Each structure stands twice: as C-alpha cells, then as structure tokens.
Computed example of a mutant assay.
Amino acid sequence: MEYLLLLYADESGWSRMSPAEQEQGAAAYAAYTQALKTAGVLAGSNRLRDTATATTVHVENGKSQVLDGPYVDSREQLGGYYLIDVPDLDAALAWAARCPGASHGTIEVRPVWSM
C-alpha cells in the first residue's frame, strides 16, 4: 500500500544553520533516501520550494481567486514528501520515524487513495 510521508518543519530553520550543519543535514536526507531505495519501497520524493513561492487558487461563487503565498499560516510548513510503498501502516510509521525530519519537525503519514 502506498503512503505519503509529508515533511513539515519551520522553513527558516535551514537558513539559521551553519554550512557544516547544512551539509550534515543534506547527508542525513541522502542516507535516508538511499535506505528507502535499497529497501525497494521508494515510489517518489521531492523537496518543495519555500512557501513564499506558492500560489494559491480558490474558487468561490464560480469565480477563481489567485493569491500569492500559502493558504494557511502555521509554525511549520510543508517542505517535501516521500511516497513509499509498504505492506501496512506499521511499516510506514517505522519509515517515518527514521526520517531526519522527524527530529526537527513533523512527519504526517497519509495512506494514498488509489484512483
């Protein structure tokens, strides 16, 4: 079954890190991604650009409204995702707990509703 691991964190945290800390963080994500690939469970992943680059579309009374920026204000922002294919929720939760983002943010685990 496919699960989406949604990675939430304070996006300003990266810019507050030293270059050495950024390098260490990037290496941790690279190792995690490689572990998912090696286990044969990675179906896709991407990092998202900052929320300042977001555009939000909402339709109200048949009229489209386009807004710059994210739709919701939050302490943590969606920064990326991993799409994994594992046998069950327990396996998805185990992978989520191993994600480096779990130590400095929140990992939301959502089953994918296949169409």
Rank of each mutant, 00 (worst) to 15 (best):
M1E: 11
E2V: 01
E2R: 15
E2C: 06
Y3P: 00
L5R: 04
L6F: 07
L6S: 06
L7N: 08
L7Y: 09
L7K: 06
D10L: 05
D10P: 06
D10Q: 03
E11R: 04
G13P: 01
G13K: 14
W14T: 09
W14R: 09
W14F: 15
S15T: 09
S15M: 14
M17A: 14
A20P: 04
E23R: 13
E23H: 08
Q24T: 11
G25Q: 09
G25R: 09
G25H: 12
G25S: 13
A26H: 07
A26T: 12
A27C: 00
A28T: 07
Y29M: 14
Y29T: 04
A30G: 07
A30C: 00
Y32H: 14
T33Q: 11
T33N: 14
Q34V: 03
A35E: 15
L36N: 11
L36S: 03
K37R: 14
T38P: 02
T38V: 07
T38G: 01
A39K: 09
A39R: 06
A39D: 05
A39L: 04
G40Y: 07
V41K: 04
L42C: 02
G44F: 05
N46S: 15
N46P: 07
N46I: 00
L48H: 14
L48K: 08
R49D: 13
A52L: 10
A52R: 15
T53G: 03
V57S: 03
H58W: 05
V59N: 04
E60Q: 05
E60S: 04
G62I: 01
K63G: 02
K63M: 05
S64D: 05
S64P: 05
Q65A: 06
V66L: 10
L67H: 12
L67W: 02
P70L: 03
V72I: 12
D73K: 14
S74F: 02
S74N: 10
S74P: 00
R75H: 12
E76M: 10
Q77S: 13
G79F: 04
G79W: 04
G80P: 10
G80S: 03
Y81V: 09
Y82F: 15
L83W: 10
L83K: 06
L83H: 06
D85L: 02
L89D: 01
A91Q: 08
A91Y: 01
A91C: 04
A91H: 09
L93H: 05
A94G: 03
A94D: 15
A94R: 12
W95D: 04
W95T: 06
A96T: 05
A97K: 14
C99W: 01
P100N: 12
P100C: 06
G101T: 13
G101R: 03
G101W: 01
G101F: 02
G101H: 05
S103L: 07
S103M: 08
S103C: 00
H104Q: 13
H104R: 11
G105T: 11
G105Q: 10
T106N: 02
I107S: 01
E108P: 06
R110V: 03
P111K: 08
V112A: 13
W113A: 14
S114M: 11
M115D: 06
